[in-house]
């Protein structure tokens, strides 16, 4: 298992390298000189030259690239062009909020989506199936910002169950933190729930037709256990794959959720960096997102090895 994981991590290195290079290039091919944006149109040529030499922008591009990589290897993402704070510090401050939101979103998506999918498959054409189909269609066709606003309106404004603004609560206030997480997580997980329900329903319909389900019935396994154990375990393989793939989409969607709910997180940092053309911060954020996505993919593979005994882990 450890060797399997080690091998998986090794294959991540070229991917990560490519993504980092892309981040470096992207930030540099954006038209416009950051010096002009930051110092203003009226800046003197001396000031611009000074800015360039301070930020290293006057060096040849390959030297900038090597400098970027070597700093990265030392865990240094540079300093913000605007606030002069180290980029890594800014990211690490809010990363826990984004992580907890994304994980909670996935938890909502899976823990509601899987049972809904199973129930729909079991009822196959019955009223429960139709109810789930309509529900998932709703989940898929509402943009996240619409559902987020509706959730806020109903549960925070009208019912007052949850706080309207989920500004970061410290970890020392776990109840407050959970309460401020609930609505954003639900809003973020809604679309995923719809997808997971559909993936589960489809998988379930297929698996229930398999020979091994017939074998289980022939040995007298109770119907309930056939569905929730024998069939579901096989369907979960597909759900794990889907979750891994969807996680990166979810991290992207979390930007919007963070803004609607006014939560601290990478998303708000991205929007701020974009608005102020803070290229170093932006570059650092792209790196952070890339590492996150790549790690999630590795984790998915690991899960896959754990749920499917046919995946060679030795």
């Amino acid at each position: 298992m450890l060797r399997y994981f080690g091998r998986r991590v090794l294959t991540l290195i070229p991917t990560l390298f490519a993504v980092l290079t892309l981040a470096f290039v992207l930030v540099r091919i954006v038209p416009g000189d950051p010096a002009l944006i930051i110092l203003g149109d009226q800046a003197t040529p001396e000031a611009i030259a000074r800015f360039h030499s301070e930020t290293g922008l006057d060096l040849p591009i390959w030297q900038q690239y090597l400098g970027f990589l070597s700093e990265l290897l030392r865990g240094d993402l540079g300093v913000s062009m605007i606030s002069n704070r180290p980029v890594l510090t800014s990211i690490m401050e809010v990363l826990p909020y984004t992580l907890e939101l994304s994980l909670a979103g996935v938890a909502v998506g899976v823990s509601f989506g899987v049972p809904l999918g199973v129930i729909a498959a079991r009822s196959n054409g019955g009223w429960a199936d139709w109810a789930v189909r309509i529900l998932t269609l709703g989940g898929l066709s509402f943009p996240a910002f619409v559902s987020a606003v509706m959730l806020l309106l109903v549960f925070s404004v009208w019912l007052g169950w949850f706080p309207v603004i989920s500004t970061g609560k410290p970890i020392t206030d776990p109840v407050g933190r959970l309460m401020s997480l609930a609505l954003p997580a639900f809003s973020l997980g809604l679309v995923m729930m719809a997808y997971v329900a559909r993936v589960t329903r489809g998988g379930m319909m297929n698996v229930m037709r398999s020979d091994f389900i017939r074998t289980a019935r022939a040995k007298g396994v109770p119907a309930r256990r056939i569905v929730w154990k024998h069939a579901l375990r096989n369907v979960l393989l597909g759900v794990v794959t889907f979750t891994g793939l969807y996680f990166s989409v979810l991290i992207g969607n979390s930007v919007l959720t963070e803004i609607v709910f006014n939560r601290p997180g990478l998303g708000k940092l991205v929007v701020g960096a974009l608005e102020r053309r803070d290229y170093t911060l932006l570059q650092g954020l792209v790196v952070a997102y890339a590492i996150l996505v790549v790690l999630v993919n590795a984790l998915t593979d690991l899960c896959y090895g754990a749920v499917d005994p046919r995946v060679k882990t030795e």
Binding site: F212, A216, A218
Partner: peptide
């Protein structure tokens, strides 16, 4: 008890 035709698919792959 029952024995089936297709042994390759008659057993649950994940148990």
């Amino acid at each position: 008890g029952m024995v089936f035709q297709e042994p390759m698919t008659a057993l649950n792959p994940v148990f």
